[in-house]
């Protein structure tokens, strides 16, 4: 390894997000026992890989194409979503000249396929598990739908599917990845804001992006020690953890909303 590369690696490790990348080789067992429920041979996925997603917020226009693409692909019931794009209106009050500018901030949300997934740990029947490639899945034939995982996920990424009556969530479209296709949301994203790939492969597009933007990569709720593997570029700290803002007007339409 040449010295520039080595110093790059050191810098990488020092980053906050480094905490999320290091666990590829196993999270610190002293601080947490990670349960993956993945002993069964059919729960391995694509061993040797570690799927992750980068969401480049600078490119997201909030069009919800991903939301629709996912709904069509994965057939979640109407009103329930594996991924959505949240929208916020933001104004600055720091005295800057941009004071009067109202900006729209869009935040695509999905399961973070956490390296230390609290949802997997709590499941009483080991129905939810994490494959070797990092994808967190639900075996919905085993799931008793106790919703314990829904409670445990700090990101509200899970829900009880009204039709299957089992826990449901984003799978990174594992069924598509296995066929060499991109997840539906990545495929439909008009701005090219969603990039999925194997972060164990240093030559993958996602690895390049993460190296390139290493100073500007954030994850949601880093304080939860879940080590999310959906990384955001162009994120403001005010929106990484519990948001302090004005309430949305919920206007649910129809029974399923």
């Amino acid at each position: 390894m040449d010295s520039t590369k080595r110093s790059l690696m050191t810098r990488l490790g020092a980053l906050t997000v480094g905490a999320a990348i290091i666990p590829v080789s196993g999270a610190n067992p002293l601080t947490t026992t990670i349960i993956r429920n993945s002993e069964a041979p059919d729960r391995k996925g694509q061993s040797g890989k570690r799927y992750a997603m980068v969401v480049d917020l600078r490119k997201c226009v909030g069009c919800q194409a991903c939301t629709v693409g996912c709904s069509i692909e994965n057939q979640a019931p109407i009103g329930q979503f594996r991924t959505t794009v949240k929208q916020y209106e933001v104004t600055l009050d720091d005295g800057s000249s941009e004071l009067q500018n109202v900006k729209s901030f869009t935040l695509p949300r999905l399961c973070n396929h956490c390296e230390n997934p609290p949802c997997v740990k709590v499941c009483p029947v080991q129905a939810t598990f994490q494959r070797d490639d990092g994808i967190v899945m639900v075996d919905n034939e085993r799931c008793v739908a106790c919703a314990y995982c829904v409670q445990a996920c700090p990101y509200d990424a899970r829900f009880i599917n009204e039709e299957t009556l089992t826990a449901d969530k984003c799978t990174f479209c594992a069924h598509r990845l296995e066929e060499g296709l991109l997840p539906a949301c990545v495929e439909t994203c008009v701005g090219g804001a969603r990039i999925i790939g194997d972060i164990k492969d240093p030559n993958s597009h996602i690895s390049h992006l993460m190296r390139e933007h290493q100073d500007d990569i954030k994850v949601l709720k880093p304080e939860e020690n879940t080590q999310p593997h959906v990384f955001y570029i162009g994120m403001d700290d005010a929106l990484t953890s519990k948001i302090d803002g004005k309430v949305a007007i919920y206007d649910p339409a129809g029974e399923n909303a």
Binding site: Q80, F81, T84, V85, K86, Q87, Y88, E89, V90, T91, L92, D93, D94, S104, F105, A147, V150, Q151, D156, F159, I160, D236, A238, L239, I243, D244, G245, K246, V247, A248, Y250, P252
Partner: peptide, 16 residues
Amino acid sequence: MNITEILVQPQAIAWL
């Protein structure tokens, strides 16, 4: 920074 939610999907109650 002032943040106002515009479009946020409410999470359903999971434990009934």
